[in-house]
Design a protein around this nucleic acid. Structure first.
Lengths: 165, 165
DNA sequence: ATTTCTGCAAACGATTTGCACAGGG
DNA sequence: CCCTGTGCAAATCGTTTGCAGAAAT
């Protein structure tokens, strides 16, 4: 019982983007649709350049400029989250629709990104924010860490949530 | 009883940097000393460009290139922490010597940066990291929030820890 | 028809780097 | 002296932007 009428995150995303556009007199174009389809075809994080490649696989006419112009739209409408993980390029995370409060651990050895979710952190952040006299809008925890397994054996079997490895 | 023989964070910093340099056959120069003095003369966060200006006030011969070449040294030796707060320029925090585990709240209205410390967060992050099979090396919480006072009255009286306001 | 979008290529801005000279040890 | 550090200016590289034509409504 999950074969026909299932709504994927991509579908949700497309709907959300369409209302977002509609609400401001913006137009629906093949390029924008290709970009959003590309963005939600994967659960991996990606850079603008990655997204360009993925979108071009769907619609070859997509240009770099359009990707850069569309990304802020997707972020504003809540479809993507921009991550500051400290690299030289900005990366984007398409998993916040499904898991709105998850956070990231970056392995300093494997460079992999592990996603995790923890209700206590969430709660604590809200308390702290209120105590300081603010209303929370966006919270992010970044943990940099060494992989224990890698330390012992020189390999790491953990799944990267970022690069499909 | 705090007039004469007090050791400021600057002094500590200078000592730490000197050992760091000594340990790798690197030299002590007027420029490096000026840069570190400038960095610890303030408790505010700063960009590379800010630091250049501050260092030049001490030693006019300091060049932009040397600032950029020295910053990684200060970060490696633990004197400064690099912050990814999402702006276009990297900013540096000189307060981790005194408060090794503090975190940051960024006000989306005033753009101010508030520092806070919370032992529960610290603890929780360690638990989570271990549970995932890692050993923590660096943890950072960034909270973006709206200032309640600003929402009500259109002004914000909070002290920015970043720009002395 | 009107207005928004697009691709292209040039512009930008923070950071990095090659080089020849300066200055620590 | 020898080798590291420096300033300068040019190079890099992700991202942004101006413009003229293409497409959506």
């Amino acid at each position: 019982m999950s074969t026909m009428a299932e709504k994927s995150p991509r579908d949700d995303a497309r709907d959300i983007l369409r209302s977002h556009l509609a609400g401001r007199g913006m137009r629906r174009t093949v390029q924008r649709e290709a970009i959003i389809d590309a963005a939600f075809r994967t659960k991996d994080h990606f850079s603008a350049e990655d997204l360009l490649l993925m979108a071009r696989a769907i619609e070859p006419s997509v240009s770099r400029a359009t990707v850069y112009r569309t990304l802020p739209l997707l972020v504003e409408s809540g479809l993507l989250r921009q991550l500051d993980l400290g690299g030289d390029t900005t990366i984007y995370d398409p998993n916040f629709l499904d898991h709105p409060t998850h956070n990231h651990l970056v392995c300093v050895d494997c460079r992999k990104i592990i996603e995790f979710e923890d209700p206590h952190i969430e709660l604590l952040e809200n308390c702290i924010t209120r105590r300081l006299g603010f209303s929370p809008t966006n919270k992010s925890v970044k943990i940099e860490a060494r992989c224990d397994e890698f330390q012992r054996s020189g390999v790491c079997s953990k799944q990267s949530s970022a690069r499909g490895a």
